[in-house]
Design a protein around this nucleic acid. Structure first.
Length: 892
RNA sequence: GGGCGCGUAGCUCAGCGGUAGAGCACUGUCUUGACAUGGCAGUGGCCACAGGUUCGAUCCCUGUCGCGCCCACCA
């Protein structure tokens, strides 16, 4: 017999390896079955599972397991990402604790004895770290139950994928879609690398607006500029004013003398300058501000870079500021300007400051040479594909977001001044001529042709943006550039499941690369889900201390409970998904409930005969139950087809708990615990059948407990593991059985309510007298007598001409039911209860009358709506009349 | 500054033209031979606010307020 409670820990530990080793997760590209493929959003190889992963991978696994049972040849392609900047950061931090640093050029050495690693040494350390922690996240995905085909696991820096990266880079370069350019980039002075626009996040910062006076050459006049960044003034090469600004237009064409520097800078007219902002005149620092750069370009201004890569002032700054950090320089410059009497005023000012999302310090626009991908060109095909529906977004507004980004895209800076990542396949000759090739050998070959002799080449030290390799993920993992069977079969993949947060970072770029290299979308559907937050809707973060560890929840409640919670949370439309541990506990209780229903079935000899056709069931309760199963089955299929995973979860919950446990099990107890015979046999078989099918329907969401129950129910010996079972096909429903059971459920519920309301002791068994029942009802009462007696706690069901005086009365359909209570209850209370019921019905009649009395309603509303109102009115009126009779009887 | 989403029971959320729902919490009650991680019965809602469309609006439209997210040139 089953234990009293379900113990997830032991079962999960046992079931997962069994599945994996049996090959149940493996794809079969050679099979004739239709393909269904999801590529996993590759987690950081050295990361660990957080709530976002738990949600994302639960949703994927639900779809995967469902389609596998549906008979598709399923591939859930797993793997991990080298996560360049993130991993490098972690390893650097680890090394720092050991007193080891990186040999970075120009860094101020804080400790002379500090050991410094060169590139090669550092990379060895990263690989060491990967070897040490690389299995963590994949192990945790296994604990979650993710049925990935691990035999095909890939890593963005493994040999095959690196090859794909090289080829893509070289091809795009040769097609002119990758190029080098010298322009302003977002520079992270902490990570010491360029980053892309997307890696910059704006933060509201309270700062100041400083108003500086710049003397006008050859006059006593000053022009006042306002700035939030005083330190950049050292790089100013102009002041811009609006051409129509009455305040300043007279100065256009004159020059100002840049204080502290002494440089003569022009005052130019440019519409960029907004007379309403600041002083109306704006200082122009082309080397350190994106807008100023544009202004500078228009007016052919010099761009004077005053920062080094650490954002310290360089040799272009006056001597006394050199080497100062930008924020120290800010203070000093403000002080110096004030001393010089050139500080007009200071206003507190809140504004958005761009921060590097990894380094966490403000980024510095810096003029450097970087590699760029022509995103505008690459975005054309994806935009077209999204427009004509070759790729679909769920929810649909994802498409609009996608367009908004893709249509306004800027060149994508793909080079990073890091060591961990795919090193750019570009080599430079002595004259800096660049040779881009798949290998150093090929580069050398080209160089020889170019120079007419062998020359020493130097490889570009930069690596590619992590998202460059992730962009290839849907085809690189399938073997591209080789034309493998897997690539042929699974590309385009079926659906991509991911969060809104990486729509641009990742989804958009996979679309670009997929369209360009495969000429087909990488996935037919993009299913976007929200962010898991704490119960207050706050993003989980270590610094806030509100992180809930999914592994702790798995430990405490089981993986199935966490999965079920994730599934119910995942409304396709949602923005943020608030997680409360209480909800996970509820899911655990749900698992226990199913476990115990099965335990009950087991104790009562529920078993499937060798041959059993549910369509031959005779008993109303069984026919109804099978209909409910069919309805649940259909609803789950429909919900999953439309990516309404939460609806599938809700359906399962209501079906299993609300129908099977609350009603079917209770209603059939008299049969199962009664005399042997065909009725008992049928009910045992139907119970076993329903549980068997239920376990299948629940399996995608709760794989562990269902596999265990499948085994315990004895199906395993006959059919094998549940994971490989075919998905149930819904059977027909029986409307007559549904109507009869609807009546029964209402009768029992009404009796229970009335009893509870009048405080009839729960243990008191009353007689049930039926007045005015028609033939159908008489038959039904006879059929379900045992169930009624048990569930409504009555003793004997008898027909009577009139209700006895001291009784509790209720009306269901055409009949009145009286439960003689004698001294047990207060008749006044019963009178009040009846009056309340009568008033409720009266109110309803009035409401309906108002509607039906409205000529516009009767003439304009659809016929069936009007008819329905008439029926409801008749029903209410009839019940009210019967209750009035009952009330009269009571007080007679 | 622009765009988008969300305001439904004490809390977390479903529902989205025609009888307002769930889970948790709360109240009463029950150790009924599956389950107290449970059963049964309840309490609780001007469906944010104001207009409009409609025979009819929680649902569609417009505006207001509040919350959140994304994007945007750090004057």
């Amino acid at each position: 017999m089953l234990d009293k409670t379900y113990d997830p820990k032991e079962i999960e530990a046992r079931r997962y390896p069994e599945w994996e080793q049996s090959g149940a997760f493996e794809a079969h590209p050679e099979s004739a079955k239709p393909p269904y493929c999801i590529v996993i959003p590759p987690p950081n190889v050295t990361g660990s599972l957080h709530m976002g992963h738990a949600l994302d991978n639960t949703l994927q696994d639900i779809l995967i397991r469902w389609r596998r049972m549906k008979g598709d040849d399923v591939l859930w392609q797993p793997g991990t990402d080298h996560a360049g900047i993130a991993t490098q950061m972690v390893v650097v931090r680890n090394l720092e604790q050991e007193g080891i640093g990186l040999a970075v050029e120009g860094a101020s050495k804080t400790d002379a004895n500090k050991k410094l690693l060169n590139r090669e040494e550092f990379l060895a350390k990263v690989w060491e770290w990967k070897a040490y922690s690389g299995g963590t996240i994949t192990g945790q995905l296994r604990r979650l139950g993710a049925s990935c085909d691990w035999s095909r696991e890939r890593f963005t820096m493994d040999e095959g994928l690196s090859k794909a990266v090289l080829k893509v880079f070289v091809d795009l370069y040769r097609q002119g879609l990758i190029y080098k350019d010298n322009r302003l980039v977002n520079w992270d002075p902490k990570m010491l690398t360029a980053i892309s626009d997307l890696e910059v996040e704006s933060r509201e910062v309270r700062g100041n607006l400083w108003y500086f006076r710049y003397p006008i050459e050859g006059s006593d006049e000053h022009i006042i500029v306002a700035t939030t960044r005083p330190e950049t003034m050292l790089g100013d090469t102009a002041v811009a004013v609006h051409p129509e600004d009455p305040k300043w237009k007279h100065l256009i064409g004159r020059h100002a003398i840049l204080p502290l520097v002494g440089r003569r800078i022009p005052i130019v007219a440019d519409e960029y300058s907004d007379p309403e902002k600041g002083s109306g005149a704006v200082k122009i620092t082309p080397a350190h501000d994106f807008n100023d750069f544009e202004v500078g370009r228009r007016h052919k201004l010099e761009a004077i870079s005053i920062f080094d890569k650490f954002a310290r002032l360089n040799d272009n700054a006056p001597e006394r500021y050199r080497g100062l950090d930008r924020f120290d320089a800010r203070k000093k410059i403000v002080a110096d300007m004030e001393e010089a009497g050139l500080l007009d005023k200071v206003e507190p000012h809140t504004h958005a400051v761009p921060y590097g999302d990894r380094g966490g310090v403000p980024v510095e626009p810096l003029l450097t040479e970087q590699w760029y991908a022509d995103a505008r060109k690459l975005a054309e095909a994806p935009i077209a594909a999204a427009r004509d529906g070759r790729v679909r977004f769920v929810p649909e507004r994802g498409r609009e977001e996608f367009f908004r980004w893709m249509e306004n895209i800027e060149p994508w800076c793909i080079s990073r001044q890091l060591w961990w990542g795919h090193q750019i396949p570009a080599w430079y000759g002595p004259d800096k001529k660049v040779f881009v090739a798949l290998s150093e050998g090929e580069a050398r070959e080209e160089a020889r042709k170019h120079y007419g002799k062998d020359v020493p080449l130097e490889r570009d030290p930069d690596v590619l943006d992590t998202w460059f390799s992730s962009a290839l993920w849907p085809f690189s993992t399938l073997g591209w550039p080789e034309e493998t069977p897997a690539l042929g079969k699974y590309y385009p993949t079926s659906v991509l499941v991911t969060g809104w947060d990486i729509l641009f970072f990742w989804v958009a770029r996979m679309m670009m690369m997929g369209m360009h290299f495969m000429t087909e979308v990488p996935f037919r559907t993009v299913y976007l889900h929200g962010l898991v937050t704490d119960e207050k809707g706050q993003k989980m973060s270590k610094s806030k201390g509100n992180v809930i560890d999914p592994l702790e929840l798995i430990e405490k409640y089981g993986a199935d409970a966490l999965r079920f919670t994730m599934a119910s949370l995942a409304a396709a439309s949602a923005g943020r998904l608030r997680l409360t541990p209480a909800r996970v506990e509820g899911s655990r209780n749900f698992a226990t409930k199913l476990w115990n229903a099965t335990r009950f079935a087991e104790m009562n000899g529920a078993a499937l005969p060798e041959v059993f056709d549910p369509a031959t069931a005779q008993l109303t309760v069984n026919k109804w139950m099978l209909g409910e199963l069919a309805r649940a089955n259909q609803a789950i299929d429909k919900a999953l087809e439309e990516f309404r995973v939460n609806e599938a979860a809700t359906t399962l919950y209501e079906f299993i708990w609300g129908i099977v446990c609350d009603w079917y099990v209770e209603l059939t107890k008299p049969i199962l615990q009664g005399a042997d015979g065909p009725e008992k046999n049928e009910t045992r078989a139907v119970t076993a059948f329903v549980l068997r099918e239920t376990v299948k329907l629940l399996h995608p969401v709760m794989p562990f407990i269902t596999e265990e129950l499948w085994d315990k129910l004895g199906h395993r010996a006959v059919h094998g593991a549940l994971i490989g079972q075919p998905w149930p096909a819904p059977a027909a429903t029986d409307t007559a059985a549904d109507a009869e059971m609807g009546w029964l459920v209402k009768l029992i519920s009404d009796i229970r309510s009335a009893r509870a309301e009048l405080n009839v002791p729960a243990g008191a068994k009353l007689r049930l007298l039926v007045v005015g029942a028609d033939q159908t009802t008489q038959t039904r009462l006879a059929t379900h007598r045992a169930a009624i007696e048990r569930l409504a706690r009555v003793e004997g069901v008898e027909t009577a001409a009139t209700a006895p005086k001291a009784s509790l009365q209720l009306v269901v359909g055409e009949a009145t039911y009286a439960l003689p209570v004698g001294e047990v209850i207060d008749l006044k209370a019963e009178g009040a209860r009846l009056q309340k019921e009568i008033k409720k019905l009266g109110d309803e009649v009035l409401k309906i009358d108002a509607k039906l009395g409205n000529a516009a309603f009767v003439s304009k509303a659809p016929e069936e709506v009007v008819e329905e109102q008439r029926e409801r009115r008749a029903q209410a009126e009839q019940t009210r009349a019967r209750l009035s009779t009952a009330l009269a009887r009571l007080s007679a």
